[in-house]
């Protein structure tokens, strides 16, 4: 094949300019502004902006709400990504086996991906409505059996169920693709040596699935930190009593509802650092266990 060499030093810049401009406008510029505001006390309508050093960080880190919100965020991160990955893994393992309906299942499980998380939130609020939803008959028998509007545990269960439904498609596709790429010979050899399905799951499928598992863990963990916004905004508004006021929602409500641009920017900087640390941690410690060889 003939190799083309582009002589112009500007051409690569021209070609990548659209992407760079978008990245700059929608990513680097907001981040730079967030850093600026985090060190200033900003009047909502503009006007005056006063440099206050680390005052905003002292205020944010000194407030109980920030820490309870951060605690809830970490809890949500672990449980939401855990439940969604586990469910998707079980479904992928089931769909990978040579069962009659698995081609259909592989197709059907992908559909929820097409629904926005805010829409899913609205739908599930209705499905799980304590007076009108599917659990309402149980409430008639045992009053107070299910009320996600007032019971914090129920609220979280509602969020996890919805999140699992929301997160399954993507995770499922990746895991199923990983499973299908495992050579049949390995299964056959294992079976001939007398190992049953469970044995093969632990010794063949899961070890060979680690690259895909790693990818979905990284993505799901990061997504549970930021992607929970749509669900919380439509389902709980951070309630009851601030119990589901996760950082990403708190930043929104502090900044937009409460005109606290400085506080919201400060928390954005902290959340960014948190996501970077967690992702970095995953790459440093989890990736070691990943087996890329087949």
């Amino acid at each position: 094949m003939k190799q083309e060499i582009f002589r112009s030093r500007w051409l690569p810049w021209w070609l990548s300019a659209p992407q760079l401009i978008v990245l700059f406008l929608f990513f680097y510029l907001p981040i730079a502004l967030a850093f600026f505001w985090a060190f200033h006390l900003e009047q909502p309508f503009g006007g005056r902006s006063e440099f206050v050093g680390l005052e905003n960080f002292r205020r944010v880190l000194g407030s109980g709400e920030f820490w309870s919100s951060a605690g809830a965020t970490l809890l949500y991160m672990v449980l939401a990504s855990g439940t969604s990955i586990l469910t998707a893994l079980i479904l992928a393992l089931a769909a990978d086996r040579a069962l009659k309906l698995s081609p259909l299942a592989r197709n059907v499980f992908i559909w929820p991906k097409a629904v926005a998380s805010a829409s899913i939130g609205v739908i599930f609020v209705f499905i799980l409505n304590p007076f009108l939803g599917i659990l309402a008959p149980l409430n008639e028998i045992w009053p107070g059996f299910w009320n996600p509007r007032t019971n914090v545990t129920h609220t979280y269960i509602m969020l996890f169920v919805t999140n699992v439904w929301n997160a399954i498609p993507f995770t499922f596709i990746i895991l199923l693709a990983g499973l299908q790429a495992i050579p049949q010979e390995l299964h056959k050899a294992g079976a001939m040596d007398g190992s049953g399905p469970w044995r093969r799951l632990w010794d063949i499928q899961l070890p060979l699935l680690t690259p895909q598992l790693f990818v979905v863990i990284v993505l799901e963990v990061a997504d549970s930190l930021s992607g929970s916004f749509g669900l919380i905004d439509t389902m709980t508004n951070g309630g009851p009593g601030g119990a589901t006021n996760l950082l990403v929602y708190k930043i929104y409500s502090d900044g937009f509802k409460a005109y606290d641009l400085s506080g919201a920017a400060t928390q954005t900087v902290i959340l960014m650092a948190l996501v970077a640390c967690i992702t970095g941690f995953q790459y440093v410690f989890l990736e070691r266990k990943v087996n890329y060889d087949r």
Partner: peptide, 21 residues
């Protein structure tokens, strides 16, 4: 000042009391 936000805070804290927190 920031009274809109105070209303949210009042709702949030009293909601905790109404739900038994």
């Amino acid at each position: 000042g920031f009274y809109v936000q105070f209303r949210d805070i009042f709702m949030e804290e009293t909601q905790k009391a109404f739900t038994g927190g």
